[in-house]
Amino acid sequence: MKVTMTVNGATCSGEVEGRTLLVSFLRDTLHLTGTHVGCDTSQCGACVVHVNGRAVKSCTMLAAEAEGATVATIEGMADADGTLSPLQQAFQDHHGLQCGFCTPGMVMSAAALLAENPKPTEHEVRHYLEGNICRCTGYHNIVKAVLAASGQDLPAVAAE
Protein backbone atom coordinates (compact mmCIF):
# COMPACT_ATOMS: atom_id res chain seq x y z
CA MET A 1 0.00 0.00 0.00
CA LYS A 2 1.04 3.59 -0.42
CA VAL A 3 1.54 5.84 2.60
CA THR A 4 2.08 9.56 2.66
CA MET A 5 3.24 11.60 5.62
CA THR A 6 5.06 14.80 6.40
CA VAL A 7 8.54 14.03 7.68
CA ASN A 8 10.69 16.89 8.94
CA GLY A 9 8.51 19.29 6.98
CA ALA A 10 8.62 17.47 3.66
CA THR A 11 5.85 15.38 2.16
CA CYS A 12 7.04 11.81 1.76
CA SER A 13 5.36 8.84 0.14
CA GLY A 14 6.33 5.24 -0.25
CA GLU A 15 5.08 1.72 -0.81
CA VAL A 16 4.87 -0.38 2.34
CA GLU A 17 3.48 -3.72 3.40
CA GLY A 18 0.83 -3.84 6.05
CA ARG A 19 3.42 -5.14 8.53
CA THR A 20 6.02 -2.46 7.79
CA LEU A 21 6.97 -0.61 10.96
CA LEU A 22 7.30 3.14 10.96
CA VAL A 23 10.99 2.80 11.86
CA SER A 24 11.56 0.58 8.81
CA PHE A 25 9.80 3.07 6.58
CA LEU A 26 11.98 5.89 7.92
CA ARG A 27 15.24 3.93 7.69
CA ASP A 28 14.77 1.76 4.62
CA THR A 29 12.42 3.75 2.40
CA LEU A 30 13.28 7.33 3.30
CA HIS A 31 16.93 6.53 4.19
CA LEU A 32 16.62 8.52 7.39
CA THR A 33 19.04 6.26 9.26
CA GLY A 34 19.41 8.56 12.25
CA THR A 35 16.53 6.74 13.92
CA HIS A 36 17.97 3.51 15.34
CA VAL A 37 16.72 0.07 16.29
CA GLY A 38 18.24 -1.18 19.55
CA CYS A 39 15.80 -3.88 20.60
CA ASP A 40 12.76 -5.84 19.52
CA THR A 41 10.58 -5.42 22.59
CA SER A 42 9.94 -1.66 22.56
CA GLN A 43 12.15 -1.19 25.59
CA CYS A 44 15.25 0.71 24.54
CA GLY A 45 13.90 3.91 23.00
CA ALA A 46 16.60 4.29 20.31
CA CYS A 47 13.82 4.64 17.75
CA VAL A 48 11.85 7.47 19.38
CA VAL A 49 10.46 10.04 16.92
CA HIS A 50 7.67 12.56 17.20
CA VAL A 51 4.33 11.76 15.56
CA ASN A 52 1.95 14.69 15.59
CA GLY A 53 4.02 16.25 18.32
CA ARG A 54 4.12 13.25 20.64
CA ALA A 55 7.10 11.01 21.38
CA VAL A 56 6.51 7.59 19.86
CA LYS A 57 8.67 4.47 19.69
CA SER A 58 8.67 4.05 15.94
CA CYS A 59 9.24 0.29 16.28
CA THR A 60 5.82 0.09 17.91
CA MET A 61 3.84 1.82 15.22
CA LEU A 62 3.00 0.66 11.72
CA ALA A 63 3.95 2.90 8.85
CA ALA A 64 0.35 2.65 7.71
CA GLU A 65 -0.81 4.10 11.01
CA ALA A 66 1.22 7.21 10.29
CA GLU A 67 -0.71 7.95 7.11
CA GLY A 68 -1.22 11.69 6.96
CA ALA A 69 0.74 12.29 10.15
CA THR A 70 3.40 14.84 10.85
CA VAL A 71 6.60 13.06 11.82
CA ALA A 72 9.75 14.63 13.24
CA THR A 73 13.03 12.73 13.42
CA ILE A 74 16.51 13.57 14.68
CA GLU A 75 17.49 14.68 11.17
CA GLY A 76 15.06 17.57 11.46
CA MET A 77 16.20 18.88 14.84
CA ALA A 78 18.99 21.20 13.76
CA ASP A 79 18.49 24.38 11.75
CA ALA A 80 18.77 24.19 8.00
CA ASP A 81 22.26 25.74 8.18
CA GLY A 82 23.37 22.98 10.53
CA THR A 83 23.16 24.98 13.76
CA LEU A 84 22.29 22.58 16.53
CA SER A 85 19.10 23.12 18.49
CA PRO A 86 19.63 24.25 22.10
CA LEU A 87 18.90 20.71 23.28
CA GLN A 88 21.35 19.13 20.84
CA GLN A 89 23.92 21.75 21.79
CA ALA A 90 23.40 20.97 25.47
CA PHE A 91 24.10 17.29 24.78
CA GLN A 92 27.41 18.25 23.19
CA ASP A 93 28.29 20.84 25.84
CA HIS A 94 27.67 18.41 28.69
CA HIS A 95 29.07 15.27 27.04
CA GLY A 96 25.65 13.66 27.07
CA LEU A 97 26.59 11.03 24.51
CA GLN A 98 29.40 8.60 23.89
CA CYS A 99 28.78 5.96 21.23
CA GLY A 100 25.84 7.96 19.91
CA PHE A 101 23.55 5.03 19.21
CA CYS A 102 20.86 5.82 21.80
CA THR A 103 21.33 9.54 21.24
CA PRO A 104 18.68 10.21 18.56
CA GLY A 105 15.99 8.58 20.66
CA MET A 106 17.27 10.21 23.81
CA VAL A 107 17.20 13.67 22.23
CA MET A 108 13.71 13.14 20.78
CA SER A 109 12.39 11.96 24.15
CA ALA A 110 14.02 14.84 25.97
CA ALA A 111 12.59 17.30 23.45
CA ALA A 112 9.12 15.92 24.12
CA LEU A 113 9.69 16.26 27.86
CA LEU A 114 10.73 19.88 27.57
CA ALA A 115 7.75 20.64 25.37
CA GLU A 116 5.46 19.24 28.07
CA ASN A 117 7.40 20.40 31.09
CA PRO A 118 9.81 23.25 30.33
CA LYS A 119 11.43 23.29 33.79
CA PRO A 120 11.62 19.69 34.94
CA THR A 121 13.29 18.58 38.13
CA GLU A 122 16.11 16.04 38.10
CA HIS A 123 13.60 13.41 39.20
CA GLU A 124 11.20 14.32 36.41
CA VAL A 125 13.96 14.08 33.80
CA ARG A 126 15.06 10.67 35.02
CA HIS A 127 11.49 9.43 35.20
CA TYR A 128 10.63 10.69 31.71
CA LEU A 129 13.72 9.06 30.19
CA GLU A 130 13.01 5.67 31.77
CA GLY A 131 12.02 4.32 28.35
CA ASN A 132 15.38 5.22 26.83
CA ILE A 133 18.32 2.98 27.65
CA CYS A 134 21.86 4.29 27.43
CA ARG A 135 24.73 1.89 28.13
CA CYS A 136 27.58 4.41 27.88
CA THR A 137 26.97 7.52 29.93
CA GLY A 138 25.45 6.22 33.15
CA TYR A 139 22.82 8.91 32.42
CA HIS A 140 24.75 11.51 34.47
CA ASN A 141 25.55 13.85 31.62
CA ILE A 142 22.29 13.18 29.79
CA VAL A 143 20.30 14.39 32.78
CA LYS A 144 22.61 17.37 33.12
CA ALA A 145 22.22 18.20 29.44
CA VAL A 146 18.44 18.13 29.61
CA LEU A 147 18.39 20.27 32.74
CA ALA A 148 20.80 22.71 31.12
CA ALA A 149 18.69 22.87 27.97
CA SER A 150 15.73 23.79 30.13
CA GLY A 151 17.57 26.98 31.03
CA GLN A 152 17.75 26.19 34.73
CA ASP A 153 20.76 26.99 36.85
CA LEU A 154 22.67 23.71 36.58
CA PRO A 155 24.69 23.83 39.83
CA ALA A 156 21.44 24.51 41.70
CA VAL A 157 19.40 21.68 40.18
CA ALA A 158 22.07 19.09 39.48
CA ALA A 159 24.28 18.86 42.54
CA GLU A 160 26.91 16.17 42.07
Binding site: I74, E75, M77, Q92, L97
Partner: peptide, 14 residues
Protein backbone atom coordinates in the same frame (compact mmCIF):
# COMPACT_ATOMS: atom_id res chain seq x y z
CA UNK B 1 37.39 19.98 24.54
CA UNK B 2 33.87 19.21 23.34
CA UNK B 3 33.66 16.18 21.14
CA UNK B 4 33.69 16.76 17.40
CA UNK B 5 32.05 13.38 16.70
CA UNK B 6 28.97 14.50 18.60
CA UNK B 7 27.78 16.67 15.75
CA UNK B 8 27.13 13.74 13.45
CA UNK B 9 25.64 11.63 16.22
CA UNK B 10 23.34 14.43 17.34
CA UNK B 11 22.07 15.10 13.85
CA UNK B 12 21.39 11.50 12.86
CA UNK B 13 24.21 11.47 10.33
CA UNK B 14 26.48 8.87 11.89
Amino acid sequence: IKRREDVRFLTGTG
